[in-house]
């Protein structure tokens, strides 16, 4: 029997592969969503629970003023020293001083790590953007339960 010598090398046809990749790229480019939209979760007390049933956990009230000052007040916490229980983050150029707020929240969390609730009380003239920024700072400091007080 005579064995013919055949070449073991062969060429892969790359054209269908390129076609497939091109179609995939076109599809993904057309369906791509470039704007990354997320959500800030806020829980509102509807008022169906009795006051005695409500668990008393430490919380921070952030009261926003029309001038850009923030009044912070810690409630239901025994670990927070008297100087940090109620204080003001003064505005800077008629805007909220975000750096000072961040520092204040870090100090509060260091003094009492069990503070997980942050309640925001805006004024009628407060911009929606500022409320979201305060929420963002509260979340950054590690608070998970956020709320916004109605006017």
């Amino acid at each position: 029997m005579k064995h013919s010598k055949k070449h073991l090398d062969f060429e892969v046809n790359l054209i269908p592969f390129i076609d497939l990749l091109s179609v995939s790229i076109c599809f993904l480019l057309i369906t791509a969503v470039w704007l990354n939209v997320g959500s800030m979760d806020v829980k509102q007390a509807v008022g169906g629970q009795a006051q005695e049933d409500t668990k008393k956990s430490p919380l921070v009230w952030v009261r926003m003023t029309a001038q850009g000052d923030l009044d912070l007040e810690v409630q239901q916490s025994s670990l927070i020293p008297a100087t940090l229980r109620k204080f003001r983050v003064a505005q800077q150029d008629s805007k909220v001083n975000w750096e000072e707020l961040e520092k204040a929240l870090v100090n509060l969390r260091q003094a009492d790590p069990s503070i997980n609730t942050g309640l925001i009380q805006p004024t009628a003239s407060t911009a929606y953007e500022e409320i979201i920024d305060v929420m963002d700072k509260l979340k950054k400091s590690g608070m998970t339960d956020l709320g916004v007080s109605p006017l």
């Binding site: 997320g38 959500s39 800030m40 979760d41 829980k43 929420m135 916004v148």
Partner: peptide, 14 residues
């Protein structure tokens, strides 16, 4: 609140 929607999700851009 009146309609019983207690969880609010504010849409934001990341």
């Amino acid at each position: 609140n009146q309609a019983g929607y207690s969880d609010i999700k504010f849409a934001v851009v990341l």
